[in-house]
Structures are given as structure tokens and as C-alpha cells.
Design a protein around this nucleic acid. Structure first.
Lengths: 187, 187
DNA sequence: CTGATTATTTGATTTTTCTCAAGGAGTATT
DNA sequence: AATACTCCTTGAGAAAAATCAAATAATCAG
């Protein structure tokens, strides 16, 4: 539970009782490698907070497994489109290794927002940060060569390089497995 | 002013007095084609709401003008990264035609959030929608060929095709002017 | 431990799209 | 109306990365 409270350090504006209320709604789960917490085609009803380990969002396109995002310790993840819109999502979310994760439902979160505006604010700030990150990803997809994209990932989130397979990283960086393999060979 | 109030129809949860407070802070400006409302290198301090006409966000990369986004009537826009992070932004925002636009400053918006939580909620919902749109854009950039990207834009936002130049659309869709021209020739 | 399955690497070829180059169409300027 | 501009189109060749194919390495199940 301290692990969860540590995550709040990024949000000093959240009041103490709001933190307590949030933590009391947060359900802690333990996952093994490969366990799915969300499935494509279902409405994603939870926001996840990685306390330990890592999660990966992915979907299938023409029978190929395509990675959408990685969430490492201290990061949030969900099938954002589905979570926001309440429509069936296209992503699966799995544990990449043994992980400890906090989850909170959409309904509980909305309820907390009613009584704790500072939590809604923190959620807003997280959304803003996710938006910025996505914008950066888009520009980076647009302008960098395959090699630059890989070097940039190595620079910004080196842990991913160690935790994910070549295929998972390749689909995340939008290149073929072969291309990534060749890039890695030449560094 | 009714134009602005119409824009609220998407947000039934905003209380009447919050709408009034928001509208009273909103500064209405008239723009001519080519007028800039934001400049790269400066901190973007305003959120814009297009009442009439259209705005375009763009930046320069190797002396080429790259379109980031278009905002048509009823849509919001800003240099999101800069607006959120309070750091100098990389985008310019210009009017693509004679336009009428509402603007509100970051400080005023934050102030309104203090007294009107339903406005912060509406802002959160807008952010969520922007996030989803960006996510779609990313996937679409990733998987569609140049021709599919163009057809998809024609389908989803045909007005842009008519308002923007070939060069502006090409950079937005991440292809060369020549490629777009060839695609258009073959439809 | 061993065969089987899966993941990664390496090579050859093909495809998509870009770049460079030149011509044409439309608009604005004088 | 002639000149200059800018924008758009078309063609030819080049480049980046994909696909197809095969070999090697790593992991897993019995």
C-alpha cells in the first residue's frame, strides 16, 4: 500500500482525505506473466496503476500482435478509448511479467470525482500528460527513421528494451521485426 | 454570442451560471485569412474556440510548413503541449479564412475551475475526446497507405479537403505533395 | 536431455513513397 | 496584356523499409 501512496507524490495538490478515499477504492491484484486484465471487444471498465512489474496494451491486426503501449512501475494505463467512451475497446492489456497492479472502476472513479475535486484535477493532469506523450509519439512516428525511433526509445525508456521482445518493440515502433533486428545488429 | 452558447450544447452537465461565467471571460476576436493567433517559440496562453471559419496549427521543419491540425466551426484548439506544460510551443496557429474566434487565457480558465467544477469537468471531457482523436490519428498513420489516409480524411472531415491547400493536406496526412496530387488524380 | 516450437537473424527481392526535375495552370502585379 | 509568382501536376530515378525465404538460436514441454 505504501507503494501506491508513493505514486501520489507526483500530485501534491491532492488532499489527504482524497488520497485515502482513492486508496480505499483501489483494488490490488497480483498478475503472472501473460495474464490479461482487459480483452478486446469488451468495454474497459478499469484504470490500472502499476505498482510493480509491467503491462502491455496490444491488439491483433491481420493476425499480427501490435503493441500500443507499455506501462512500467508508477505508470497508469487503460484502454483509453473504451474507458472514456464506454464502447467496446480494441485493445488487450496483459502483464509482461509477474506484476502487482492497482485497479479502480470507472464508476468508482466518477463517484470519487463528485466528492473529491482534487482527484478529478489529478486525473485531468494525467490525461494532459498522456496527451502530450501521444503527441510526441505522433511527431516522432512522422519524422524519424526506423533507426532514430529505436534510438529514441532506448534513450527515453530503456527499460522497455529489456522487458519486451523484438516483435513487441518492432510493432510498437512501427517497423518490421527484420528491420529492428538489423538495426540492433548494427549498434 | 449565441454562437458561443450553442457550443455548450455538447456539455449539458455545465451549470447555467458556469456557462455565463465562461462566456463572460471569453474574448471574441475577428481574424483575417493568414492572421496568426499563436507563434512558435512562445508560451501558448490561450484556448481557442472557433465560432466561425477555421484555424490551422502548423510548424516549420527544415523550412517546410507542416500542418499539425485543423479546427473547424465548433471545435477547440490550442498549442496543447505548450498550453498544458507552460513551456514555449513549437506550433503556430493561423486563420485559414476570415474567422470569428473566442479565446480564454490559461489563468482565467484555471480560475474558473476553482469556482465551477463542472467547467473543469467539461474541459476534462474535451481533453478525453482530443486524446481519443489523437489515438485514432496515430493508428491511422501507422496502418493506412497514403491513399487510404486521404480517403479516410475525405470521409471523416470533408470540409478540410475544400478549405486547405494540397500542401497543407499533404503535410497533415504525412505524405509528399506529389503523392497527394497523384492520389487525387486517380479518384 | 531432447525434440518441438517459437523467436531472432540474415539475405534477396519488391513495394511504396520520396526526391529531384520540369512543365502547366491559375493568380496577382505592374 | 505581359511578367512574375505560387501552386499543382506529371515523370523518372532513388531510398527506406516491407515482404518472402531460409538459417540459426533460444525456450519450452515431456
Amino acid at each position: 500500500m505504501e507503494r501506491i501512496f508513493n505514486l501520489f507524490s507526483r500530485f501534491p495538490e491532492i488532499e489527504e482525505d482524497a488520497k485515502t478515499a482513492f486508496a480505499s477504492k483501489l483494488q490490488l491484484i497480483e498478475l503472472d506473466r501473460g495474464d490479461l486484465v482487459e480483452r478486446a471487444g469488451e468495454v474497459c471498465d478499469h484504470l490500472y496503476l502499476v505498482a510493480e512489474g509491467s503491462l502491455r496494451s496490444f491488439y491483433f491486426k491481420d493476425n499480427k500482435d501490435i503493441t500500443v503501449s507499455f506501462a512500467l512501475e508508477g505508470e497508469f494505463t487503460t484502454s483509453m478509448y473504451s474507458f472514456i467512451s464506454r464502447q467496446p475497446g480494441y485493445e488487450n492489456i496483459e502483464a509482461m511479467e509477474s506484476s502487482a497492479v492497482g485497479k479502480i472502476s470507472y464508476a468508482e472513479l466518477k463517484e470519487l470525482f463528485e466528492t473529491h475535486p482534487t482527484l478529478e484535477r489529478a486525473y485531468r493532469i494525467i490525461l494532459e500528460q498522456y496527451y502530450i506523450a501521444l503527441e510526441e509519439l505522433l511527431i516522432f512516428t512522422k519524422f524519424k527513421s526506423a533507426k532514430e525511433r529505436y534510438l529514441s526509445l532506448m534513450e527515453s525508456r530503456p527499460k522497455i528494451i529489456h522487458k519486451a521482445s523484438v516483435g513487441q518493440i518492432a510493432s510498437y515502433l512501427d517497423m518490421s521485426i527484420e528491420t529492428l533486428s538489423r538495426i540492433r545488429g548494427k549498434i
